[in-house]
Design a protein around this nucleic acid. Structure first.
Lengths: 123, 123
DNA sequence: GAATCATATGCCCATATCGGCATATGTCAA
DNA sequence: TTGACATATGCCGATATGGGCATATGATTC
């Protein structure tokens, strides 16, 4: 088994820089494929393929309008990503606080004396 | 050129489910490699390789302790991911509000009369 | 219907990836 | 030093991927 299929989940879908770019581009409103092509200066088949992946993972939605197809980001399907990030946020905050804490302690001890606070071998 | 190297950015790193699992596992405190192996029931070389990627992208940090190496998530390097997600959050919120809005309007109009609100052809 | 515009798909190639396995490196204990 | 423990790395094969190009499908206008 090689890498998991891109089509299967949103995390894999946003692993590709160009797709993140497209997502950002589509963030504010609807765009046709050609507008994306012109806006990002990527060739059309490539854009279509990326849009396909984004659509399969549900990250964007498509609407037909004459011969054009209008794409936009899909809020609901993007939520799992957001929630995953949020799940970490708690820990991150803790860690950041700890980092801040440590920095303050260090500064304090540096101010009090010039004792070397036994730096741990961190890689 | 195929896909961008996993090593290059955090998005690619978290594209792999096993790595997300490891990140979650490491979220609360430090763990040795073997603890991860036992905890997630993945074989050791695989864990080591994933840890390597996570370390290269800066998502985790490593500290030596005797013959063990202790890993933990690295708050700062995870922040770009969080910020990227947050950048969307604004739009998502808007979209979600719109969705909610629409739903409410729909419910209201359904309550008032049984008029079909010209549903657009959505894929 | 024919020509044209808008988008999607198929094919090929070079490459990165993961898992599995064996093995190398590094560290501590006797 | 030797041996056990802890972790990292190298190699292999199967496979998914993205880009480039040509081309197919679909819709509109003439």
């Amino acid at each position: 088994m090689a890498r998991a299929a891109t089509t299967s989940d949103a995390f894999n879908a946003i692993a590709e820089p160009r797709r993140r770019q497209i997502l950002l581009f589509l963030a504010d409103r609807e765009y046709s494929v050609n507008e994306i092509v012109d806006g990002l200066r990527v060739d059309q088949p490539s854009v279509s393929k990326h849009l396909r992946v984004l659509r399969d993972t549900g990250l964007v939605r498509m609407r037909c309008s004459g011969r054009q197809k209008l794409y936009r980001t899909n809020a609901e399907s993007i939520r799992p990503l957001h929630e995953w990030a949020s799940e970490f946020e708690r820990y991150w905050t803790h860690q950041l606080l700890r980092v801040k804490d440590r920095a303050e302690k260090k500064a304090a001890s540096r101010a009090a004396s010039s004792d070397s606070s036994s730096p741990k071998k961190e890689e």
